[in-house]
Each structure stands twice: as structure tokens, then as C-alpha cells.
Design a protein around this nucleic acid. Structure first.
Lengths: 355, 355
DNA sequence: TTGTAGGCGTTATCAC
DNA sequence: GTGATAACGCCTACAA
């Protein structure tokens, strides 16, 4: 492995000049530049990212915190693989590497230490907990001015950088779709109220019903925990009340599919199913029988957006990259950005498609 | 942010001693040790991982290369989220951080540069391509002695470190299960032959049939590309031949589910379905109707295993961690390790469960 | 058991 | 435009 010194010698310049050429900084005579590049190429010189990071006190890494999932499937893999892809894609554009970390069962991750240890320059939190410790950890991050972005979750009364999808609107779309087709007795299987996510959906359902001149019937409001199993459990109560329920809107696809399974287990035939609309538009929804209508969430784009937001702003990391210049085309005025959702209609809720 | 120097002053020792205490190296008087720890604690000192890495010329990062997936869903998200979790879990145990990288569409990733730039100390490749360039890149890694491990893929005639599941055995199990129940006309929907994975499955199918005194009927051998769509396409041919096909074994769940969908689209009723066995035991399989029997692959454990293998051996990275001592309990004698698979039986292939 | 000092490979700040 | 040279913060012989 050739060293920078050898390159300098071969090119007949100083080591400093080699650096300048390779980093594209400062004025360089074209002839010099060419010679350095040539020598560098010939010797197969590769600058050490480690030394560079050290000298610049910037790791060049973007931390990504993932929820604790292993073997639990609490969150759908789809959800996080899409987000991660979006993040990775944009990170690459900005010359950042991804440092992925998993939350562990009991303990809160010490976010600030990650910054202090200089392992990361910025951080995206996908799986924030809903407890006090977690909040405190994030508040500390904020206080110390470390750039971070929370995804898919809203902390009211905090001014964190956040990226989310518009779940109020998404839920409204789902309800509107159902009422448009004449469904009136719509059960809503929501997730735990502790998630801002769930609260948004509930609000959307309210608005959607209101549009159609209806009110939310508390008796038709069920709560699961976003798992398929909780959908199956909800099916127990739904199966007995099919005379007063003609549609089910679930806060995610897994629960919707769980309800379908639960109903089948209890002998309800497919043709007697209520209409179904799920949420997330996951792979599983598409594969369900009947194919599940669902609110599509732009996970990939949300990932991209989070990185873009991090790259700018007061405490952004815009100068993270060394080489080519980075130019952001969009600016985000507010701390919280919501991306639009979209309703995908399939057989499960479409009277014309249903057989 | 307190510096090491301040800690040294407060504790009344030299900076070197602070380092020694914090890294747990060299003989230290208990009294000194206590004072340093106390001072460090009081000042909230956090050593820079960057500087440490630089001094040791070890990044402390484990690179993980993921296949190009974004928006394509070519590989199931389940597959890679499980592996990644396993890798992450074991990496954490060894004090390594995960540097995740996505393959891009056209270009081969320059693996060696990652090492030369000192971004990573070792590397796990999940989504190796099957072309010449990719192979060359890995050969170069090998030649330069960089520790890496290929997952879920076998390169014959190369001596790479590899972790895989025993797909020959897994496929044999699937076929045996079907023949045990009296199925004789078994169609096998395999993935592209270019994957060692597919080849293994084919071999397993051969062996399984042979056990039952049968031969592989080339007419019952179909090829898809592991996507649901290719399963749907295969269904076209299967639907017309249900008189001579009483069971379908697919090389992954997605294709199996695709076939189910394709059959339904063509008006085949569920009760007229052939028996189905899929592969991977993904979430989707469990959610299918009828629930899909499948060969379970221990993705999580494979991820863990890959890290363990990298941590030892001639070109291992056993000394990657600084603090607490690492002890490997198991040793792996061969470069290639196969983990056992397991057949999960559900309604799709079980005559007693089928309604 | 502890202190001293050289070195790790870049970046960045001065001079020239 | 280009060449010296001092940081950067930590590790680790080597000395004491």
C-alpha cells in the first residue's frame, strides 16, 4: 500500500500538495494536478479515511438507530428495510456511511456518547421508545446541539427534527373510501394510544367519519398492538358482531391480516367478510386473500428526506463530505415534515372487485 | 467536553495512566485506578473513538454489504432484516459497530478500498452478485488477506469464508414430507440456476425423490426468479396441468404465494389446490391462505455465526476490541459452515389440517 | 507501577 | 501555487 509520501516523491511535489489535489482544495496548477493524480493512480494510493476523520474530527458516519426487533417481528421488516434503503441512498449521495445500531431490550441507548466518542456526525432514530428515559436521552442530544432526526414519531412540546407521514390524512382517505362505497358500520382497530402514530390515525378516522356526517362509535373502536396476533384477538370480538360491522379499518396491514385469519378460524367465509382496509401497504397486504386495500406510506422517501434535512440547517452537517461539492436543492423550513400518503385499493374493500 | 489531560490533572497522574486505566491494560495500583475512574466520571470524560481507531489503525467497524433492493423487493425484506439483526447482535458482543452498505445497480462495489481506507476491519457480504466482476473483487479481497465472509452463497473452487444453510437437506425434508403423505406428482419451482442456492435445492429435491424411489421429472421442473411475480407466471403452466401435478415445492415463500395467487386468478378454488411447500418460513408464508408449509432457515443464527467466524482464525480480527476480554467458545474448523434447516408444517401441505 | 515521548496519516495554517 | 510544520487525541514501547 503506497503512502502519500511516495506519491509526493514520484510526483515531485510535497505531501501537502498531494492532499490539496486529492481533496480538490486550494489553487493548483493544472500540470501539478495531473502529475499528482498520475502518481497516485500508478502507486494505487488510497488515503486513510481514519486519519482523515481524525484530522477533521468528523467520522463521516450517519448513525441509524433501529428498534429492538430480533425474533419478535414487532415492527414489520418491510417498514424498516424501506426506510433504511432510503436513508442509505441519500447518505451515499452525501458521502456519508451508515452506522447501524439496534436498540436493546431493557436499556436506553446512550445517544450523546455516540457523538462524543465521534462515532457519528448525525443520527436518525427509527425506533424511539415511548418512555421517559428515551425522551430524556433525546432532550440531551438536543441540548448539546447534536443533529438528529426522529422518524415516524412525533414528540409534542419538543422541538426535534422529525419526519413523518401524514397519518391523519391517510386515515381520512381510508374512511372516505369506505363511506363512499356505502359502508357505515366501520370498526377501527388502532394501535396503542401511546404512539403518536396511533393518535394521528384516530384523528383521521374522526375527520373521515365526520365528513360523511357520522360520529366515531366508541363501541367500534378496538385496540391492538400492531401485531398479527392482536389482530387475531380482535377478530374474536368482530366475529360475534358481524351484523353490526360491515367494514374494518386497521392501523396496519399485519393486524388487518390477523383479523382476516381470526375470522376464518371462527368459520367466517371469505364472501361474508366485512370490507377491509389496512395501513402501510406492505408486501404482506398485497399477498393477502383477498388482496388488502391499504394506505401506502412512502417509507423510502421518508428515509431520503431525513438525511436531506440533516444535511442542512443551523446544526446541519453540510460540510461532512470532502470531495465533490454538495448542493441541496430543497430547503425545509419547519422542523417537522410530513409526507403524503396514498390509498391503494384492492379487492378487500372494493365491491366491484370482490367476487 | 472534558479532555484526557484534565482527567489526568484532576487524578494527579499522567495521561498515559489515564489511558491504561480506561483500557484496562498494564499493571495499575488499585488506588490510582480508583482516582482516575473517579476523575473521569466526575468530568464526564469520553475518549474519542476516532482518535483511538486512528492510533490503533483499526476502525472497529464491521462492514455489511446488502444486495441492491430498494423498491424492487427482489430479496425478501424478512431475509435480510433477520440476518442483519443476527449480525448486529453478535457484533455488539464483540464491540464492533456495523457499517452498512448497499450495492448499487450497475457497478461492483470496491471492497478492497473499504479496507485500505480503513473504514472497516472485516466484512460480511450478503448480496454478492453472480458475475465475473464481483468474483474478481472478492478474489482480490482474499488475495490481500482481508477478513470477509460470504453469506447464503457458495463459490465453488474458491476458498472464501462462507456461512450458509443446508439447502440440500432442507429441500430433501420438504420432498420427503410430501412423498410421505402420498404426493407423487411434485412440481418444483426453483430459482435461477446461477445461484448456488438454487443448485443446492435442486440437489436436495433429487435426493428426496430418490429416497422415495422416484426420479426428477424434467417436465415438472420450473424456473422462476424468486419473485412473487414469477410465481404467478409459473401458475399459468401449473393451472393447466393440475391433473398431473398434486404438489408444488417452491424455492421460496414468495414464489409459492405467487403460484397460489396465480391459480386463484385462473379460477382454481382453494380446495382444489395442490399441496404447497415454500422455503424461508417468512412472515408472509405464515399469513398466506392456506398457511404455507415452509423450510425454516435460521437467518438470525447465520448472521451471528458469520461474525463469530470472522472473530477468529488466521486472518481474524480477534483483537478488534479494546476493553473487556473477548473469548470465543466455539471454533470453526472449515471455511464453509452450514446451519441446519427445519420443516415447518402448516395447512398448505397437511392433509389432516386441510379442510 | 508510572511517566516520557515518539508515532499514527491527514488537515490546515503559515510563510515563501 | 507550493512547501514546511504544527496540531489532532490516543496508544505504546521504553525508561525510570
Amino acid at each position: 500500500m503506497a503512502s502519500r509520501r511516495e506519491v509526493a516523491e514520484l510526483a515531485g511535489v510535497s505531501e501537502a500538495t498531494v492532499s490539496r489535489v486529492l481533496n480538490g482544495v486550494g489553487p493548483i496548477r493544472e500540470e501539478t494536478r495531473r502529475r499528482v493524480l498520475e502518481a497516485s493512480e500508478r502507486l494505487g494510493y488510497v488515503p486513510s479515511a481514519l486519519a482523515r476523520s481524525f484530522a477533521r474530527s468528523k467520522s463521516g458516519n450517519l448513525g441509524v438507530v433501529l428498534p429492538y426487533v430480533p425474533k419478535a417481528h414487532l415492527f414489520s421488516a418491510y417498514f424498516f428495510s424501506e426506510m433504511l434503503s432510503g436513508i442509505g441512498s441519500k447518505a451515499r449521495d452525501n458521502g456519508l456511511d451508515l452506522l447501524v445500531m439496534f436498540q436493546t431490550a431493557g436499556e436506553v441507548m446512550n445517544y450523546t456518547d455516540l457523538f462524543r466518542r465521534q462515532k457519528i456526525d448525525a443520527c436518525i432514530i427509527l425506533g424511539a421508545r415511548h418512555d421517559q428515559d428515551e425522551l430524556a436521552a433525546m432532550q440531551q442530544l438536543d441540548r448539546e446541539g447534536h443533529p438528529f432526526c426522529v422518524m415516524n414519531q412525533h414528540f409534542a412540546s419538543e422541538s426535534f427534527m422529525e419526519v413523518d407521514a401524514d397519518h391523519v390524512e391517510g386515515s381520512k382517505l381510508a374512511i372516505r373510501h369506505l363511506t363512499d362505497q356505502g359502508y357505515r358500520k366501520i370498526a377501527f382497530l388502532n394501535g396503542p394510544d401511546s404512539y403518536s402514530n396511533s393518535q394521528d390515525r384516530l384523528e383521521g378516522v374522526r375527520l373521515g367519519l365526520h365528513e360523511a356526517g357520522m360520529e366515531l362509535d366508541p363501541g367500534l373502536l378496538l385496540e391492538g398492538n400492531y401485531s398479527r396476533r392482536s389482530g387475531i384477538e380482535a377478530a374474536a370480538s368482530i366475529a360475534n358482531r358481524l351484523y353490526e360491522i360491515d367494514a374494518v379499518f386497521a392501523a396496519n396491514d399485519r393486524m388487518a391480516i390477523g383479523v382476516m385469519h381470526g375470522l376464518r378460524e371462527r368459520g367466517v367465509r371469505t364472501q361474508d367478510f366485512p370490507a377491509f382496509v389496512g395501513y402501510d401497504d406492505s408486501d404482506a397486504g398485497e399477498m393477502a386473500v383477498p388482496a388488502l386495500s391499504s394506505v401506502r406510506v412512502p417509507f423510502f422517501e421518508m428515509g431520503e428526506l431525513a438525511v436531506s434535512k440533516l444535511m442542512q440547517g443551523t446544526n446541519g452537517i453540510a460540510d461532512a463530505r470532502g470531495q465533490k461539492g454538495y448542493h441541496s436543492t430543497v430547503t425545509f423550513d419547519s422542523l417537522r415534515t410530513l409526507l403524503p400518503t396514498e390509498l391503494i385499493i384492492r379487492a378487500s374493500s372494493n365491491r366491484r372487485i370482490e367476487e
